[in-house]
Design a protein around this nucleic acid. Structure first.
Length: 388
DNA sequence: AATGGGCGCAACCGCGTGCCT
DNA sequence: AAGGCACGCGGTTGCGCCCAT
């Protein structure tokens, strides 16, 4: 059975508020307050509105000192930082921006800031791609030279997988000679999270968060307020997991009323966190402490990203891999053609992937997905950012 | 000038939570 | 302790404006 409606929907007005309704509501609340009962309020005033609607109208538009639009760069940075830190908890974020409402911030984020961020990063990405292409070209030339005298077995010190490929735009599997020199790909370690199976798609929010992580949670690099940040997965991430290893670093209010994120560089003894306690902390601080889930953490600065596991045993650079993290699947096209240079016919294939973890052995039709898609669920790990 | 698609934003919906009885 | 109710919140919807064609 569903929940009983909060009001008689047939007899309440919906849609945009008229100036008259605004005036009535504003006048009444300024004189009498809400008396802690929004549901009864519209009847007292003679408004044919749902109490929730009145509340929303007051909170978002009629109450004093509300500002709309004209978000400053600093506000952008705060929103970005907090979004990365605590996720889409707009009310908490709004609490740090005087005069802003959660609804406004949410709309601003969804319609502008997110796009602004992606557009900005895409430009940087293109420049980086250009650079990388040049590097790659040089490397390919070197490999080509080497390949004439070296067989695949010479690379046996590395974990390798063999790829099957098909000729692009053909409908029949391509039979290639048994002794064909298949290109070889290094295999990255398997996913660092035992929960990676829960994250089958690399969604937009993940991508945005990864991007923010890279940018240090800031939209603008001209932000000078915080020099050391610790970013945590969202509370939701935390609640979705049972294997919690904590970083508890609640942002605090500074003497000037600004949000201050404590300087903590590394964590973390494993310990459980109690949700109720966390929730209390959140309410007290106006932001969230949090814990991470699973097996490792990402240490990142502007130039480098590393993963460290719980025992600090594994440490690996992510240079070059970060791209896969920063974009949705559509941007993760790995053009195998590059690796086929010098290896016979014009064999190409493309695949989306976030982890070089497995290979399919059979060639099928047209372009084949060569690698099983398995993403590294980095968002489930400690996300620690050190602003160098 | 007409039109259609995209975008921004105000408002709604429904769920989780806490309080009260 | 349990159920009902209201509040608060995040996600979603839908309308109106703007701009390109």
């Amino acid at each position: 059975m569903g929940r009983a409606p909060c009001c008689d929907k047939a007899n309440v007005k919906r849609g945009p508020w008229s100036p008259d309704e605004d005036a009535k509501l504003k006048s009444y609340i300024q004189q009498h307050g809400t008396a802690g009962n929004w549901i009864a309020l519209p009847q007292k005033i003679g408004l044919k509105r749902c109490g929730k609607s009145c509340r929303l109208r007051w909170l978002n538009y009629l109450r004093p000192n509300i500002r709309h639009g004209g978000f400053s760069e600093e506000e952008d940075n705060i929103i970005c930082s907090l979004y990365l830190s605590i996720g889409s908890r707009w009310s908490v974020i709004a609490a740090q921006l005087p005069g802003r409402t959660d609804n406004d911030i949410k709309n601003y984020w969804n319609t502008r800031l997110k796009k602004k961020l992606l557009g900005k990063h895409r430009k940087e990405q293109e420049a980086r791609h250009h650079k990388q292409k040049q590097k790659q070209k040089q490397a390919e030339e070197a490999v080509l030279m080497k390949h004439t005298t070296t067989t695949a077995s010479a690379y046996s010190d590395y974990p390798l997988i063999r790829m099957n490929m098909v000729v692009e735009n053909t409908s029949q599997p391509q039979e290639l000679p048994y002794n064909y020199n298949w290109p070889l790909m290094p295999v990255l370690p398997p996913s660092f999270s035992n929960e990676s199976s829960h994250h089958h798609s690399f969604n937009d929010q993940d991508s945005i968060r990864s991007l923010l992580l890279k940018l240090g949670g800031r939209f603008s690099h001209s932000h000078h307020h915080h020099h050391h940040h610790v970013y945590r997965p969202s509370l939701q991430d935390t609640l979705n997991t049972t294997n919690n290893h904590n970083i508890i670093v609640p942002p605090m209010m500074g003497t000037d009323g600004q949000l201050v994120i404590p300087q903590v560089q590394v964590a973390v003894p494993p310990q459980q966190i109690n949700y109720d306690e966390e929730h209390k902390q959140l309410n007290n601080t106006g932001a969230s402490s949090s814990s991470s889930s699973s097996a490792g953490c990402i240490i990142s600065n502007n130039n480098n990203t590393s993963i460290i596991d719980d025992n600090n045993q594994l440490e690996m650079g992510l240079d070059g891999v970060e791209e896969l993290l920063l974009y949705g699947e559509e941007d993760m096209m790995v053009n195998i053609e590059k690796m086929m240079i010098g290896l016979g016919p014009a064999v190409t294939s493309t695949s989306t992937c976030t982890n070089w973890c497995d290979s399919t052995i059979t060639s099928t039709t047209t372009t084949t997905s060569i690698y099983q898609h398995q993403q590294c669920a980095f968002q489930d790990h400690h996300l620690s950012y050190h602003d160098a």
